[in-house]
């Protein structure tokens, strides 16, 4: 798979799903979409597709097609979709042209808010605890969902994934979460927000700061494990190989 195909999957299924959490946890984002009642689909010709639904102050992001979406955005290629994510090229509006004001002004405000957390200002990361917390939560989710896409489409990750035993991996920030769970099966991987009992392997991150440093590639993970900032147990080869996959996220989502 080419870089654009992998990136398109990451944009749709690892980045966009963060809107769910953003709307839940960020008051500014929640206020923005409090009265939205709209669904949108994103689909690439012969490529990946996702849809988003806003209603009752919440947001749901799903894989696949929604033929009845109020707004249907089409892309002629993965590259086209990726350029839209960089605000460099508009989508083709196949349905919902009457919602143009929403598309041009309201929705971008929400995605800007997402970008604010996911492409963080280094100073804010250092000084603002709430900002750091949001960045960490969203980056944790991005990592889990990105791992699924990379294991499916990135050639190097496909190779790594082929060596990972089947089972479940829990990544959890202590003391009470958030957490993500990866279900690793031969026929495909799945990510899920939240905890699981009796995983095959687990990685427990001591607090938000340690998790933030780990997810932003600023932690010597071997030191962190030795010092107890990160606790691993269970089927360690799952974690070793998952780590290699997570380390490839910045090649796409720098």
């Amino acid at each position: 798979m080419g870089h654009d195909r992998v990136l398109a999957s990451l944009n749709l299924f690892a980045v966009l799903q963060n809107l769910e959490e953003l709307v839940k946890l960020d008051p500014q984002a929640a206020a923005l979409c409090a009265d939205w009642n709209v669904s949108m689909s994103f689909s690439v010709l012969n490529g990946p597709a996702a849809w988003i639904e806003f209603g009752n102050g919440s947001c749901t992001v799903k894989k696949g097609w929604d033929l009845k979406a109020d707004i249907a955005l089409k892309f002629v290629s993965c590259r086209h979709l990726n350029l839209m994510f960089e605000s460099k090229r508009p989508p083709i509006i196949a349905r919902g042209i009457t919602r143009l004001p929403f598309l041009l002004s309201k929705f971008p405000q929400l995605t800007k808010r997402l970008e604010y957390y996911l492409k963080p200002d280094e100073k804010l990361l250092e000084t603002d605890e709430l900002f750091r917390r949001m960045n960490t939560i969203l980056t944790l989710n991005t990592a889990a969902f990105a791992a699924v896409e990379l294991a499916s489409y990135d050639p190097v990750c496909q190779h790594i994934a082929s060596a990972i035993p089947q089972g479940t991996v829990l990544l959890k920030i202590l003391p009470d979460g958030p957490a993500v769970t990866l279900f690793i099966k031969k026929d495909g991987w799945q990510a899920q927000k939240g905890d699981i009992e009796n995983p095959s392997a687990k990685m427990l991150l001591k607090d938000m700061d340690i998790a933030g440093a780990f997810l932003n590639q600023k932690l010597d993970i071997f030191c962190a494990i030795a010092s107890g900032d990160v606790a691993i147990s269970g089927t360690v080869p799952m974690l070793d190989n998952l780590g290699l996959i997570l380390d490839r996220i910045p090649l796409y989502l720098a």
Partner: peptide, 23 residues
């Protein structure tokens, strides 16, 4: 703690405490 500041991994390679569970 001292090692972690001046040596990658603190202790690297097969002597790393990382696979010693719990360290």
């Amino acid at each position: 703690e001292r090692a972690a500041k001046v040596i990658p991994c603190g202790i690297y390679g097969h002597f790393s405490p990382a696979p010693l569970i719990p360290p």
